[in-house]
Design a binder for these strands. Sequence first.
RNA 1: GACCCUAUCGUCCAGUGGUUAGGACACCGCCCUUUCACGGCGGUGACACGGGUUCGAAUCCCGUUAGGGUCACCA
Length: 443
Amino acid sequence: MSDPVRVRFAPSPTGFLHVGGARTALFNWLFARHTGGKFILRVEDTDRARHVDDAVQVILDGLRWLGLDWDEGPEVGGDRGPYFQSERDDIYERYFQKLMAGGHLYEGESGAWRFRSPRGTVHLDDMICGTIAFDMSDPATHPDMTIRRPDGSWIFHFVNVVDDAEMGITHVLRGEDHLSNTPKHLELFGALAIAPPRYGHIPLILNRDGTKMSKRDQGASLSSYHDAGYLPAAVRNYLCLLGWSPKDDRELLPIEEVTRLFEPANINRKAAHFDIEKCHWLNAQHIAALDIDAFTDAAIPWIEKEHIHYGSRISLQPVLALIKEKIKQLSEVPGWIGYFFDDAYPFDPEAVAKTLQKPGALDRLRQLSATYSALDTWDAATLEAALKALAAEQPCKPAEYIHPARVAVSGRSIGPSLYHMLEVLGKARVLERIERTLGQFAL
RNA sequence: GACCCUAUCGUCCAGUGGUUAGGACACCGCCCUUUCACGGCGGUGACACGGGUUCGAAUCCCGUUAGGGUCACCA
């Protein structure tokens, strides 16, 4: 039996969690959960100049939002810590001395310490890219790497290798941007006489147009999905499908199923272009699959952000039930429900022009109001039957009543099913709103 | 420039020597329908190019081209 899997995500705290980084974390997490191994979070904060306060929190928040929990790391602990590189100085010092004693180091002119490359061919058996041979013999193209600055601080390659060794990392799933760094890391492991982990290099995520995705590009920041009203499960689902698939046609996948099926060897070797439209569609699918309680939980923060006075959860839920199927992003919720909770809802000029100002529209509204005010029962089925009976008497199409009624009670031409909307609004408010409309638009 | 990775519809993903090259997003059309969506049905649309290997290549090999990555006292 092989050793239990220990994988890690090792972000630099830049105050920004890139969607590519999030996917790397996700793949590591999936691999750990699939194998019953450990997922470790390590913060690579060696470069003090770059350090941003609260930057670590952005990373932690992002991972938690995506539902990626770590078994060892910041705020969790573990017996292979500390999990911040800035706190591991004595460990690095020890390994530094070990390399020194082995004669692998020399001091450059400025006082920086360099690792003397063995100048051989390094073979990498990559879990995703296959076997690759790197010829390291030419110092011109592969200069000896610096591992320590004159001020005593450490360089990425060195601490990364030391940490992976010290933390017992068995598999390194990281971005393809590190592929060319890997022979250097392998040389370091060799000099330290430590067996290296297995590496797997994940192709990068590019923009829709194939260019490199930078910070400012749409969808680059994980937090932008939260801000735009995406469900974490939907974003996670989308990320799973970017470079990996269950090998059949399923796309809407529960995370448990992905965990069950996930194999690093099945990760695609080509870079994926990011398609926000597909993510958007998946989000709509996930929202549609939510039950009304879960949808309510997800929607409330967005409703409160717009200061809509919805009363209680009890009064809110019937309204949300009406619009759930219309919603593709949570950010759309306030726009769909505002008029339910505010009698001073505005009228869309275009809707008014198209329906209310049509000849006879107001007369039909009066008729409908009279019909409805005589009703004892107030539910969608009764309202529909009454409206259709009224139309049949004239005779005219039910639509001639439906459209003006919709605009009258909501101010707009787009909305949920009219009869259900009227039911939720209630008899008194519906009649009041029709009166108001009549008063406002009568000649 | 050198080195490395990659190459199937616009995009994501199937397809690992013999398929009418499949599914999804997007797009278009039709149906459903009180609006907007959902949904249903149908359609447009791809193996980058050139050589091999083979009875037979999207699938294997080589080259070209294109895209990406790396060549730091960033991570």
